[in-house]
């Protein structure tokens, strides 16, 4: 049986099913991160003293990570443009680049975490570090999730390009929406945790 509306838009929603699905999922993700941002505000406004992020955290490394994630967002969207142009070779380069940049982001994050642990700065040290590790850890898990999906579409999942190119292009658009959301979360995490 053919799954309906994987390519064509559903007349009642105006979008193909996967797009509606990913936006509903992203709405739940907004609430997940929203709850943690809300906790951050509650903890910070309720604290007698709160350290400036830049006195504890490594701003140059986090800035580099911001650039890495923004760059991965453009390689992601360019992979979708390449498929729309029917250029599969270019698509593979861009989606592969996105996975690699995700990996670079995680390595930089691991260096940052390592430096904190070396100085015995663990989540249990104070409230600031507890919320820092919770927010960046959850974000890191999202990066790993996105990398797994993108790596699948770079490798075995890309076979669909031969059998159903339109559906495959839609899949990459949906994977891209998730990846850009992960970038969007970091855009707010970076100033909130590191610079304020």
């Amino acid at each position: 049986m053919q799954i309906p509306y994987t390519v064509a838009e559903r007349p009642d929603t105006g979008v193909f099913n996967a797009k509606l699905g990913i936006w509903l999922f992203l709405a739940s993700e907004v609430m997940l991160f929203g709850a943690l941002f809300s906790s951050y505000i509650l903890l910070r406004t309720g604290a007698l003293a709160w350290p400036h992020g830049y006195t504890i955290l490594n701003v140059p490394l986090a800035t580099l990570n911001t650039v890495v994630l923004i760059t991965s967002s453009i390689t992601m969207v360019m992979s979708w443009v390449a498929l729309r142009n029917r250029d599969f070779g270019k698509y593979r380069k861009y989606i592969g680049g996105t996975v690699l940049l995700g990996f670079v982001f995680l390595i930089i994050k691991a260096i940052e975490y390592g430096a904190k642990f070396e100085h015995h700065l663990y989540p249990s040290e104070n409230t600031f570090l507890a919320i820092y590790f919770t927010l960046t850890g959850l974000h890191g898990l999202h990066v790993i999730g996105g990398m797994i999906v993108n790596a699948y579409f770079w490798g075995p999942g890309s076979k669909m390009w031969v059998t159903d190119p339109e559906r495959f292009t839609n899949r990459i658009e949906v994977a891209g929406l998730y990846w850009h959301f992960v970038d969007l979360v970091w855009i707010f995490l970076f100033p909130v945790l590191y610079l304020l």
Binding site: T13, G14, L20, W23, L24, V30, A35, F37, S38, I41
Partner: peptide, 25 residues
């Protein structure tokens, strides 16, 4: 499409409620 905007507006309302809840405290 309009449906996606509707989902996001609803999400935005709940998100802002979450953010302003601790501020009221």
């Amino acid at each position: 499409r309009r449906l996606i905007y509707a989902i996001l507006v609803l999400t935005g309302i709940f998100f802002l409620s979450l953010i302003f809840l601790p501020l009221s405290h």
